[in-house]
Every structure is written in C-alpha cells, then in structure tokens.
Amino acid sequence: MSAAPRVWLQPLALDEAGPWAISAVEQAWSAVLPPAVQQRYRASRHHLRVRLAELLQLRPEAVPLHSPPGQAPTLEQGLGCVSLSHSRDQLLLAWSHWPIGVDLEWQQRRIQAELLARRFFPSQEWLQLQRLAPPQRAAQVLESWVRKEAAIKWQRSSLASDLRHWRWCADRQRLEHLLEGWQPRSVCERRNGWLCAVVGEAAEQAIWG
C-alpha cells in the first residue's frame, strides 16, 4: 500500500439502480434515512469504498470501514485515516496514514461574511478581516471556514464546540487552535471552481486524483 496520502475530488452522483459498493450494514443504515439523505450517504460511501479498495487491494464491500450516518468514517486500526466532505454535486475524499480532515465549498458561494466572522471567528481574526474590502473579505472568510471545518474533522471534534477556537492567519499562512496551540499543516486548493481544504500532518504531500 502506498504511503503517500491521497485526495480525490469527484462527482457525487451514483446510479440508484446500483450496484452499490456498500456493506450490508450501510445498506441497513441508509434504508431508514430520508430519501435525499439516502442518496448522498450511499453515493459517498460507495465512492469512498471504491477508492479505498484500490489502495488496500480488497473488494469494495470488504474494506473494513465503519461509517454510520452523521459520524466521521474510520478504518480498522493500522489501515490509516479517512475523511470526506460533499457539497452540491461534488465529493471530496482523503486517505492518509496519519489523521486527516477535508472540507469542500463552491468558490462562488454567497455568504454573509461579516455576520459569520463576527459570530464564529476569534476577535483577532475578525480585526484582520476588517482591513479588507468587502469582496476580498468574503473570499477570505470562506477560505478560513473550509480550513477550519477540515481542521475540526482532523481533530474529530465539532463545529459547535470548537469553531470559535480556530484561527486562520492569512498573513502568516497559519492555522492555529487558540486553546491547545495546535498548528496543523493545511492546504486550500482551488479546483474547477471549488475550494478544497486538507488538514493534517501530510496535507502538503497529498497526491490528488
């Protein structure tokens, strides 16, 4: 198995007629979800299993993946770490030997940048953002947001408890947790109109597929 971390950006679409590369347990979990959520869940786990199967040289259904709806996916110990994010019709997947987190947003997404930053960002970051013109401020708020969401997945925490403790310093290109002092490596790439954030020890070495 390759030691290099991998990241994949791809369409989320999946033919509902099947066949799906998901486990019997995942089929059971998906059956009780609302229809729209069912489709996203099946598609994301199908694609994640297919990608992992290539790395682990297993059948997709046999990949030892534990991924209940609404929870971060995990692999059997010793097989690495995974993360996923979906937005609209796109899916971002990642695998690494070390903890990793990803997040995905449409680059032109309209957001209430000032409201978000005032409410959820540390005061030091908000002060820096105020120096920017509104269009630049909105773009930087969105980039900061995806980096922080990826960091929270890397950390295995939650937006509600930890978002306000993460600070993205664009001047120093540094992501920092203000309480714990963590400064994980982070990358935010623009691909085909999407912002793709990757956070983790090997984020900068990831091979994109």
Rank of each mutant, 00 (worst) to 15 (best):
109 R>C: 12
177 H>S: 09
186 S>C: 15
73 P>L: 02
83 S>A: 12
33 L>C: 07
85 S>Q: 03
196 C>I: 01
90 Q>E: 12
185 R>H: 13
182 W>D: 15
88 R>G: 07
65 L>R: 06
113 A>N: 05
113 A>M: 06
136 Q>M: 14
113 A>V: 02
140 Q>I: 04
186 S>H: 13
187 V>K: 05
73 P>N: 02
199 V>A: 05
97 H>W: 04
188 C>H: 05
10 Q>I: 13
121 F>C: 08
102 V>D: 04
191 R>D: 14
81 C>N: 10
137 R>I: 02
47 H>D: 01
202 A>C: 11
102 V>T: 04
112 Q>M: 06
20 W>G: 00
170 A>E: 13
99 P>F: 06
107 Q>W: 04
71 Q>H: 13
131 R>E: 10
165 H>Y: 12
74 T>W: 10
187 V>A: 08
21 A>R: 11
141 V>P: 03
179 L>G: 07
113 A>S: 13
25 V>F: 07
161 S>L: 14
126 W>A: 10
157 S>P: 03
1 M>C: 00
13 A>G: 09
172 R>M: 15
201 E>T: 14
153 K>D: 09
64 P>E: 03
98 W>T: 14
59 R>Y: 04
152 I>S: 04
39 Q>A: 15
170 A>M: 07
102 V>Y: 01
205 Q>L: 11
209 G>K: 08
134 P>A: 01
5 P>I: 00
169 C>D: 15
206 A>L: 06
98 W>M: 14
86 H>I: 07
102 V>W: 01
128 Q>Y: 06
162 D>L: 00
93 L>W: 02
118 R>V: 14
26 E>M: 10
86 H>A: 08
48 L>A: 06
142 L>S: 02
83 S>W: 03
89 D>Q: 15
50 V>C: 14
50 V>D: 02
51 R>F: 08
120 F>S: 05
123 S>F: 05
161 S>K: 13
198 V>L: 14
13 A>K: 09
108 Q>W: 09
73 P>E: 03
116 L>M: 15
154 W>E: 09
26 E>G: 09
21 A>P: 02
69 P>H: 04
193 G>R: 06
117 A>Q: 03
82 V>Y: 01
181 G>V: 11
9 L>H: 09
9 L>C: 08
80 G>K: 02
83 S>M: 03
87 S>I: 03
101 G>F: 08
66 H>I: 11
33 L>N: 09
204 E>C: 13
45 R>G: 04
205 Q>A: 14
92 L>H: 10
12 L>P: 01
119 R>A: 13
9 L>A: 08
74 T>N: 11
4 A>S: 12
88 R>Q: 15
110 R>N: 10
97 H>T: 11
201 E>F: 09
55 L>H: 09
134 P>V: 00
39 Q>N: 07
13 A>S: 13
44 S>L: 00
45 R>Q: 08
9 L>V: 11
146 V>N: 07
165 H>M: 02
32 V>N: 14
160 A>V: 08
203 A>L: 09
192 N>Q: 15
31 A>E: 12
202 A>H: 12
33 L>T: 01
141 V>S: 01
79 L>W: 01
145 W>R: 06
197 A>M: 04
106 W>V: 11
163 L>D: 04
109 R>D: 11
181 G>W: 07
188 C>Y: 06
87 S>T: 12
120 F>I: 01
